[in-house]
Design a protein around this nucleic acid. Structure first.
Lengths: 347, 347
DNA sequence: GTGAAAGCGCTAACAC
DNA sequence: GTGTTAGCGCTTTCAC
């Protein structure tokens, strides 16, 4: 029974390496640790390294963690791992950390938002060195929690209102400006907005960006109706589109805060027998995979989620390794991708 | 500097609880542990629980792990976290484990297949109690490695040839049978197959399933050409489709081993000025998200990946908690989803 | 520059 | 039933 567990680990301990190298365990520890290696004589380091290599020694991070408090483990909290934007984010994060010798624990909050704190406590119990949060709302108690525990954390995709924690986000205002510019250039003058949940920075900032962009073209806000949604889903997008069209029948274009919402708008248009882009132009946001294959191919604003993940990982690593980095946001530029869902309005 | 770390954990130790409850630390340990609680007098258990609750005590799994070898941590290896089939699988896995008090470490193998072993060693170093592998090929050294270490592991999505480890997969033969039945019913008699990489069970089994299904309809195999692909990507699908069409110009339908390959076939058809389903019917496999929105909406074989993840989690938990479960596969039924990419061949 | 000793927080023999 | 003791594998004072 004991032997089962024993076989699992490489099983050679610091002490064994020490015996083989003819030195004390603590010397081996120092020799094998980049930060303390300089305390040990060069020839001893060499001898220890050789012995360790021969015996296939691997440091036990769990034991080390017990002593030092650091674990080489980081946690990532995502709101919904099935949502296609989080794949690339996770990919970026884990690529970065894998190269730095960290492992990544992923916690999927799923539909149960209240479990967030619980999940984080679980991660802390496992002594994660830091947290990447893709879940936070604009004013999230989780931020206070991390702050009060002095747990290094960085936000990704969604930022927090007060910028108390570093965040990597896309330039939401720029994205909406690009979208609106494009529609106005095509000749649209009455443009609706499918707004994301306002408790998240993406929903809030994109809505504001939309309105600012509208004003920048000298269009009145009354010609730029917004409809809120409760979640970034096709269903919500369809429902909000119906409301938008009911309230403003003369609309010729919709700038959406999110691709999934835009695809929901497709559904709504289909139900109403309207055609895109002939009757209504639609533009999404995010450029999630496969949008070039939907019909019509969706014009959208591209965000590099993988890049976002990588950056967030870098920031977190910096925060872990020296606590003195002032919290600052990294804002990634977004970029218009024109496909087939936008066209000039009917004359 | 030390205080930073200290604040992070709830910081109240077994010993402190023991003092407060007026008993010894080991008694607290026993009282708070489901398996050993019965050794302690009921009133003492109550007293200990009360003290623990008052002090906000949380067991430190890292320290416990050092002693017991178990960590309440499981690892999941995925080949490519961006691929939309793995979102649902991970979601199923983590849903199950979250409810059992386990945390899930996700390792994304990415494009570097050789890193697999290294990643697994990292997971073992963190003392994972078990592994879920979504990466294995039909004859994978990783399986030997897990076996030799007696590390509980279960395969998901892809099975191993010799069934030495339990696996949760979909019924690949059934899926292809459904696909071919559907095409034959529509009147197709010359049907091509876009085969997945044969080193993975999905590619191998679906190809075999395809041929068996063809034979079951009395069609000769020479009227059922197959083209291999190197990976489940649109690009590979497009290239293989070109080869298929070049070699067998009289083909009227393609049954693909995978949705992404099928979408690649769309690309190839478009390049050739052919129309789907008018010229060629296409059927996918997996039913990944958003297929109802591509044009034409893709007929496919549905697999419940989330269910797959959940089942795999269950199997792994069973394997962790008692080593005596004989390895067996769970084969989930698949289901035909008819959309717009299949029709009768031109008269 | 290196060894000795203590201890991270917990659990499991072993006593009584 | 409960306390005592030892130790998981490592790092880090403290000596010398």
């Amino acid at each position: 029974m004991e032997s089962d567990k024993d076989q699992r680990r490489s099983n050679v301990t610091l002490k064994q390496v020490a015996e083989r190298a003819g030195v004390h365990a603590s010397t081996v520890s120092r020799a094998l640790n980049a930060a303390t290696r300089s305390m040990v004589a060069e020839d001893v380091v060499a001898r220890v390294e050789k012995a360790a290599a021969q015996m296939g020694y691997r440091r036990d991070p769990v034991a080390a963690s017990l002593r030092t408090g650091r674990s080489k483990l980081v946690g990532v909290l995502v709101p919904d791992i099935v949502n296609p934007v989080f794949g690339p984010i996770l990919s970026g994060v884990s690529e970065l950390f894998a190269s730095q010798g960290y492992s990544v624990i992923v916690a999927d909050v799923g539909n149960d938002e209240n479990r967030q704190l619980e999940l984080v406590q679980g991660l802390i119990a496992h002594r994660v060195d830091g947290l990447i949060l893709a879940t936070v709302s604009r004013d999230d108690p989780l931020v206070d929690y991390c702050l009060s525990r002095k747990l290094p954390a960085v936000l990704v995709n969604r930022a927090e209102m007060r910028a108390r924690l570093p965040a990597v986000i896309s330039d939401d205002a720029l994205g909406m400006q690009l979208a609106v510019d494009h529609l106005v250039e095509l000749g649209h003058r009455t443009i609706g907005h499918l707004a994301g949940p306002s408790r998240h920075s993406t929903g809030y900032l994109r809505r504001r960006g939309f309105q600012l962009a509208i004003l920048s073209h000298g269009i009145e806000l009354q010609d730029a109706p917004c409809q809120d949604t409760l979640a970034y889903t096709r269903e919500e997008g369809a429902a909000a589109t119906h409301r938008l069209l009911d309230a403003s029948p003369n609309l010729t274009a919709i700038a959406s805060a999110n691709d999934l919402l835009a695809l929901g708008a497709y559904d709504a248009l289909r139900e109403r027998g309207l055609s895109c882009p002939a009757d209504i132009s639609i533009i999404g946001h995010n450029d999630m995979p496969m949008l070039d294959l939907v019909s019509p191919a969706l014009t959208t604003v591209r965000i590099s989620h993988k890049q976002m993940g990588r950056q967030a990982g870098q920031l977190l690593q910096a925060a872990i390794e020296n606590n003195d980095s002032p919290p600052h946001n990294v804002v990634l530029p977004s970029q218009l991708v024109v496909r087939a869902s936008t066209a000039s309005p009917r004359a």
